[in-house]
Design a protein around this nucleic acid. Structure first.
Length: 139
DNA sequence: GCCAACGTTGGC
DNA sequence: GCCAACGTTGGC
């Protein structure tokens, strides 16, 4: 199983929106970046990910699971763009802020720190465990 | 609200 | 195929 991070502006699509979809989940649509799309193509059903709020909140707020592999983005007429479907798994008991992540040397190599603009990114197993611990989640 | 970083586009 | 111009993102 691999681990990922999905970034969204809470004003556009937030954790509450994702939670409201329940086990049915939702397309992670709207990605218009090749790197991010390519990561989604690598995802398998059952992979886990963090749900990260950018902009005002800047924190990991929950975990999600991939429930469908990459398919054409239904919100785009351009066949280049694809997306996976994800469902909410657990809410962070304590959101893990970007400040917290940046202040932990074990997380200094996270893509989130090094390439803050990439909206879909891989997370290592070590990073996954560390942040789950911080969030009060078993992972 | 600003600006740096980065990705994409399009002219050559 | 290069590179300048432009648009977008996201942290501050």
């Amino acid at each position: 199983m691999r681990y990922w991070l999905f970034k969204s502006e809470p004003s556009t699509w937030g954790w509450q929106d994702q939670l409201a979809k329940g086990d049915a989940g939702e397309e992670w649509d709207g990605v218009r970046n090749y790197q991010a799309r390519n990561f989604m193509r690598e995802m398998a059903v059952g992979d886990r990910g963090f749900f990260y709020h950018s902009q005002s909140e800047k924190a990991v707020v929950g975990t999600v699971e991939v429930i469908a592999t990459a398919h054409p983005d239904s919100k785009s007429d351009d066949p280049r763009w694809e997306c996976v479907d994800i469902k909410a798994v657990a809410s962070a008991k304590t959101p893990v802020t970007l400040d917290t992540i940046k202040s932990d040397p074990r997380l200094a190599d996270m893509v989130l720190v090094k390439n803050s603009r990439l909206s879909v990114q891989p997370v290592t197993a070590d990073e996954w465990r560390i942040i789950c611990d911080m969030a009060g989640l078993s992972g």
